[in-house]
């Protein structure tokens, strides 16, 4: 080849074609897809917790995207929930789908571990509640006080994980992160998932209609 300009223009055009198919078209399709009616936007506190999730890189070990049981049965059988649909992420900016499962999927962690006490203690030191966990502890999200004052959220960390004297108190950051985790509850039905044929289970479909107004 002898023409530098032709190479560069050709390369750019091919990339533009790829941009059309991999950026523009998916955006058009997915932004038009129905948002599940039961999906709630994040509260201000949850959004703040989400920023902490980003800042501390939770996404490098935790995914938020259960796969279809027909494709990867383990995801649902582990209790990670139904397969996710684009609409589930309507309020997610940026997305936090994740690509690693060094830790479990968190798409439904709020439903699986609904106790904020558990969430806080697990953040303070995961090994206090799960033996052998390799998740880092996040002591910097907590304060060590001699005597908690009114309104402090005390985390009763058992020995040997807690301090010898005084109390561990959750900061606003820790509470926000825990509230975000509790908000990760996508146990509502997803309207865009394929339905089973009506005659296969008429009773089930009927009750589904009642439930999803």
């Amino acid at each position: 080849m002898k023409r530098a300009l032709a190479i560069m223009v050709g390369a750019a055009l091919i990339l533009l074609l790829a941009t059309l198919t991999l950026v523009a078209m998916p955006y058009l399709q997915m932004s038009a897809e129905q948002v599940p009616p039961d999906l709630k936007p994040y509260t201000e506190q949850q959004q703040r917790g989400r920023q902490l999730y980003i800042a501390n890189g939770c996404v490098y070990c935790h995914s938020q995207q259960p796969r279809d049981p027909g494709f990867a049965p383990g995801d649902k059988e582990r209790g990670w929930g139904r397969p996710s649909v684009p609409g589930d992420y309507a309020y997610d900016q940026p997305h936090l789908l994740g690509t690693m499962r060094t830790g479990p999927d968190l798409f439904n962690i709020g439903a699986r571990q609904p106790s904020i006490d558990w969430q806080l203690m697990h953040l303070y030191n995961p090994r206090a509640v799960i033996k052998g966990s390799i998740m880092p502890s996040y002591p910097f999200l907590f304060r060590h006080v001699d005597e908690p004052v009114e309104g402090d959220k005390v985390v009763n960390v058992p020995p040997p994980y807690g301090p010898e004297s005084g109390k561990i108190v959750a900061t606003d950051d820790a509470l926000a992160l825990a509230e975000y985790l509790l908000a990760l509850d996508h146990t509502y039905p997803a309207p865009t998932l394929p339905k089973v044929p009506a005659k296969a289970s008429p009773k089930s479909d009927e009750s589904k209609e009642q439930r999803a107004p």
Partner: peptide
């Protein structure tokens, strides 16, 4: 690539994931 992928606040939710991995 770098310019499109970093356009701030353009691609929300799941379509953000496609741009991210593209």
């Amino acid at each position: 690539l770098f310019l499109i992928a970093n356009l701030p606040y353009t691609f929300p939710g799941a379509s953000g994931a496609t741009v991210n991995w593209w």
